[in-house]
Amino acid sequence: MNLVVQTLADGLVLGGIYALAAVGFSLIFGVLHVINLSHGILVLLGAYLALILSTSLRIDPLLTMPAVMAVLFVVGYAYQRLLIQRAVDRSPLGSMLLTFGVALMLQNTMIWVFSPDMKSITPGYALASFKLGAISFDAVRVSCLLASLVMLCCLAALLKFSALGRVIRATAQQTLAARLCGVNVRHVYALTFAVSAAFAGASGIVIGIILPFSPADEGTWTLNAFVVVVLGGVGSPAGALIGGLLLGMVSTLTAQYIGPSFPNVTMFLLLVLLLLVRPQGLLGNAFAPSR
């Protein structure tokens, strides 16, 4: 019994991290209809920035989150306005090819700047643990799960209650209507991308604390985000959370009860099944009803 509970707890913690890493990807997919294949690069950029800032300023890596998010926000805005929008204007598939190319280039730039060596962000509490009854928890993973939940709630609130969120939702639901109402759609697209990049950066900090990372890992985080979004549904933090938690639980349950080498098999089997049965994901497209 303890083993089942422990496995479920581990799955929830892992899933929360997957969710945070995927939410930016989901938002861009939902609003801009762009599959951002450079998403993993933005995640890693957040991890590297946190490493540099926390080491040079000697502060807790989680405290670097506002600065990292601000930098990624600016980078994301510029990236969308200067590159992605131009590709979207030319061809629907152009943005996919562009983000793939940018991912390749930036991965190599990261190797050049940061070296290909594995890095890790190791605050004093990085290896702490605690027990609740017979269940032991990795304290950092749990705190990262909490940080993920807080961030997802913040994003949900931003989308639901703020003026920016309303404009983003309006643009995603009816681009033409939003434009007729005077919304600068290109600016909204860039802001959406900027918010998504900022959240990707934040997830990078969390991931950097939990896992060793190197520039070669960018593909893993793009792929995970893609799976999470397909499972949970496009465009909403809730969809990302559901998809992430599902993915995390499936991974740990499979590893425990089928075999540690099988999580990827069950993950993609689930993906195929869901695409056949419910291709819009468990929560569907958050912006679809008005389309």
Binding site: T7, D10, L14, P260
Partner: peptide, 11 residues
Amino acid sequence: ELPAKPTDVSS
């Protein structure tokens, strides 16, 4: 046996 690129080994 773990996957080629594991992200979690808690189980």
